[in-house]
Structures are given as structure tokens and as C-alpha cells.
């Protein structure tokens, strides 16, 4: 640690400082424009707590769904020998390059009332997904899961496959090897991917407002509330952004200390 601090070479230090300034200055801009005196009434305005709660719940659910589906997908991409893995990997990254609004329309075409799957859900079970909290979680999962898949796949590729080979020679089948050897080995990568996924889900706007619509209490998450506040009262929008920012930073710092820190330390030999 101390040795690393002493010797940051200038060609790395200067761009790094520029990068920090570039990333942090917009935040400073928000803080400068924050109407501190009117903060409390803005914070306790009706709907703010509701939007924040909905944001946290839906981002957490989206992360949970991404973990359940995305970790196995990452394993398939990194370890299996199925044909067309390159194509599969490219398809997985589609939500990353797709403008989220287009993603929202695409979700309509599949899961909407008139969609390929949605029409059948409606007719067979009377289930309609758009404009519900479920739709918020689906939109966020669609946009955020690739971040988790890519992180976990990277961790799997970097992990030493000889541990898995050793488990296999000792008689463990591939499922047991995955649970008992691979999963603990890449836990820090999974944690980092989950954090990235959660942060992306928390800030999701385009796919959510398109596929889930905007209704306070049901589908209006903080980014949507911020966008609409901007239409009427930019100061309220700044306050709402700060709330979202403060809560997400606090959560990430807490996790880093409690969870990421420990598992990260465990992974270092």
C-alpha cells in the first residue's frame, strides 16, 4: 500500500487526476446549485419518500433476478464449449448498446398487451405487465443484467481453472465443483458485478418510463421523479438527484466496508 502510494508515475497520475475532476465536477455543480435553505420542504414533499423506496426496492429486486439468471449465463459464456458462444456474448451485450427507450419499446413488443408473449399471458392468465412495479423490475433487469454478466464472466476467466480440475479429479461433479469451488473463487467478481448492476438499475430511466410508464407509488422511480421535477422546478430536481446520490453512495460505501472488503481480502492469496 505505502509503496504503491510513493510511486505513482506521472504519466498515470496526471490523467487520473483529470479523470477524477471530470467525474466529480458535475457533482460539485449540483452541490453549488442546491437550495440548502429550502432543502427540508423539498425532501418531505409528498411522493419523494415513495419514489425513493420504489427505486431501492426495484433496483434490489432487479439485481437479485440478475444474480439468479446472470451468474449461470456468465458461467456458460466462460466455461462451456457450446457452439456460437461468440454470438451469444454479442447478443448479451445488446442492451448495453441499445438506447434504453428502444429497449422499452422492445419490451412492449414482447411483454406488452399486444406483445408476442404478453398477449398469451393476458389471454391465458389475465396478467398484464406494463404499468406495474413488475414492469419496472423487468425494465431495470433488462438494462442492468449485462453489467453483471460481463463482470462475472471476466472474473471466471481470470480465476485459476486448476482448482476446478483438482475438484474434478477428486470426484466432484461439475455442479458440486461450481458450488463449492468456482463460486467462492469468483465471489469478489460477483459482488462487484452486483454493485454495478444495482447502480445501473437505480439510475435507469429510458426503458422504465417507456415500458412501465410513470405513476407515483407504482412505477415512478427517482430518476423519473427527477426528470418530471425538472419540467416544473429545477431546484426540486437538484434536491431529488442529491437524495438519490447520497443514498446510493452510502449504500455502496457500506457494502464495500462490510461485504466487498472482506470477500476481496479473502481472494488475495
Amino acid at each position: 500500500m505505502s509503496r504503491a502510494e510513493r510511486s505513482v508515475p506521472a504519466p498515470l497520475l496526471i490523467p487520473a487526476v483529470v479523470a477524477v475532476a471530470f467525474l466529480v465536477l458535475p457533482l460539485v455543480g449540483l452541490l453549488v446549485r442546491t437550495p440548502w435553505s429550502g432543502l427540508w420542504p423539498q425532501l418531505t414533499a409528498p411522493g419523494v419518500g415513495e419514489a425513493l423506496r420504489l427505486s431501492l426496492v426495484s433496483a434490489t429486486l432487479a439485481t437479485a433476478v440478475s444474480l439468479v439468471l446472470g451468474v449461470p449465463l456468465a458461467w456458460v459464456l466462460a466455461r462451456s464449449r457450446i457452439r456460437g458462444r461468440g454470438l451469444l456474448r454479442a447478443l448479451v451485450t445488446v442492451p448495453l448498446v441499445l438506447p434504453p427507450v428502444v429497449g422499452g419499446v422492445a419490451l412492449f413488443l414482447v411483454l406488452g398487451r399486444q406483445g408476442i408473449v404478453g398477449r398469451w399471458l393476458d389471454e391465458a392468465f389475465g396478467i398484464t405487465i406494463p404499468f406495474t412495479t413488475t414492469a419496472v423490475v423487468i425494465a431495470e433487469t433488462f438494462v442492468a443484467m449485462p453489467f453483471l454478466v460481463i463482470s462475472v464472466e471476466g472474473a471466471l476467466r481470470a480465476a485459476d481453472a486448476r482448482f476446478e480440475d483438482a475438484a474434478a479429479t477428486l470426484g466432484a461433479d461439475r455442479w458440486t465443483t461450481f458450488r463449492r469451488v468456482t463460486l467462492p473463487l469468483v465471489a469478489p467478481g460477483i459482488a462487484a458485478g452486483a454493485v454495478l448492476c444495482w447502480a445501473r438499475a437505480l439510475g435507469e430511466f429510458g426503458a422504465t418510463i417507456t415500458f412501465a410508464g410513470n405513476f407515483p407509488g407504482t412505477t415512478q422511480t427517482m430518476p423519473l421523479a427527477v426528470y418530471l421535477a425538472l419540467q416544473r422546478d429545477p431546484e426540486a430536481a437538484i434536491v431529488l438527484s442529491l437524495v438519490l446520490l447520497a443514498v446510493s453512495l452510502a449504500t455502496l460505501l457500506l457494502l464495500r466496508g462490510r461485504w466487498l472488503g472482506r470477500s476481496g481480502a479473502g481472494a488475495v492469496p
Binding site: R113, Q114, F131, N214, F215
Partner: peptide, 20 residues
């Protein structure tokens, strides 16, 4: 009793066009 409060008029219309 609206189900969604759209961010602009075209977004509202799109949802009618899609039959949603």
C-alpha cells in the same frame, strides 16, 4: 384513474399506437 402519467404527448400517443 390513469395508469401512467407520460412525460410528453408523443409518449402517450405511442402507447395508444402500440395498443398498450
Amino acid at each position: 384513474a390513469p395508469d401512467t402519467l407520460e412525460e410528453d404527448v408523443r409518449a402517450a400517443l405511442t402507447k395508444v399506437e402500440l395498443g398498450e
